[in-house]
Design a protein around this nucleic acid. Structure first.
Lengths: 129, 129
DNA sequence: GCTACGCTCTTACCGTTGTAGTAGGACGCA
DNA sequence: TGCGTCCTACTACAACGGTAAGAGCGTAGC
């Protein structure tokens, strides 16, 4: 229960809370942009479900509207996502990296960043060994 | 339709076909190992659903048993998975790489492989530019 | 030929996700 | 004080994924 599984839409909602801090349902819904956003009650349903999953909680009220805030951290959620993803690849990390890298979509700057991260990691591993 | 979304169990089934070539349901089921494998008919149901999704097809019969073979390629499926995953992160690649790298689970050899891939990619991008 | 075993097909059920409608309470403004 | 608006709370429902049982048919061995 510490780490409930979050679906895509649930994550998008959590993102709003992570980015903006405590937020009302109306504001979450409007943050989806005017095109093709879900209905107010759709967002509401997802928020309620996130509440039962203990991913967020009611922080306070403004008028008769509840203001919700995140309970789980973005990092925890992303770690969970990564696990999920890895399990799809049989838990082996290397093919995943390869796939991601080969899938392109990386700007030269991204490549540089990734390389730096890898070098740091390699250095750390060496020191540990 | 060219590219159906595959769930985790569906992928595990496809993996058997990708690894072993055309396979009967019984053999797919047994490839899950004796512990906690799904029932024969569960595998069968998933295979049938993969068939309607056009992810695999009936290749031939042996006795009264159908032999199934993959229609979609492993690479295509994995590319699709990567897309799915990226969309969870808002489509931005760099944070994903960072998360994966920081999530650990990489052997030194994995790191080296990834670095090499990145260097090759950087070189290719430079040449294109 | 009869029987048993394996495979096919069909059907079903539950949980999750995405979608939304509706009823009713509260609030603010005219 | 009454009307429109906004929010809550509840209910509904379809698609999908995972799970599997049950009925029936074909084949192989006796």
């Amino acid at each position: 229960m510490a780490f409930p599984k979050l679906s895509k839409l649930e994550l998008q909602i959590m993102d709003v809370l992570w980015n903006n801090g405590p937020t009302a349902i109306r504001d979450i819904q409007e943050s989806f942009g005017p095109k093709g956003r879900p209905a107010y009650t759709t967002v509401q349903t997802m928020v309620y479900r996130l509440e039962t999953k203990k991913a967020l909680r009611r922080a306070r009220k403004i008028g008769n509207a509840h203001i919700f805030e995140a309970v789980i951290s973005r990092d925890a959620a992303k770690a969970r996502l990564v696990d999920e993803f890895l399990s799809m690849f049989g838990g082996r990390m290397q093919p995943v990296m390869a796939q991601l890298i080969e899938a392109g979509n990386l700007s030269p700057a991204d490549v540089a960043d990734a390389e730096k991260l890898l070098r740091d990691l390699a250095a750390k591993k060496k020191k540990e060994a």
